[in-house]
């Protein structure tokens, strides 16, 4: 269609980005000791899911807006979850002076 374009970004490219984000998110969740860090990992996975939804909606299922709408709700949810989560972290920090989750071991098995 155009002479400038080297390739046409398509579904697989976008989902590829999403998978990379998913992997990064999982890695963050597994390595970080800090509760806020884990929350960041969650945000990465949520973004990965969002990219998936929009990509599938745009390239494959373009007869409706389901995917985009879902992404909209994911953004809303991420905000809501972050708010409550951070309030809880703050509270934990007030009690324990840390948000290092390894410190959360008074309750056991």
């Amino acid at each position: 269609m155009t002479t400038l374009a080297l390739f046409e970004p398509g579904l697989y490219h976008l989902v590829g980005v999403s998978i990379a984000l998913l992997a990064a998110g999982v890695a963050v969740i597994l390595t970080k000791r800090n509760a806020v860090g884990i929350l960041m990992g969650v945000e990465l996975i949520l973004n990965a899911a969002g990219i998936n939804f929009v990509a599938f909606n745009n390239y494959v299922w373009d007869n409706a807006m389901d995917g985009q709408m879902f992404t909209l709700f994911i953004i809303v949810l991420a905000a809501a979850e972050a708010a409550v989560a951070l309030a809880i972290f703050l509270n934990f920090y007030n009690n324990f002076d840390t948000i290092n989750v390894d410190q959360a071991d008074e309750l056991q098995g």
Partner: peptide, 24 residues
């Protein structure tokens, strides 16, 4: 969605997280 992502996510949620980082 791009606009919302920038306004709500980058502008709101992320700021929240940064506040969390600074407070804790």
């Amino acid at each position: 969605l791009a606009a919302i992502q920038l306004i709500v996510y980058a502008g709101g949620t992320l700021i929240l997280i940064v506040f969390g980082v600074m407070l804790t």
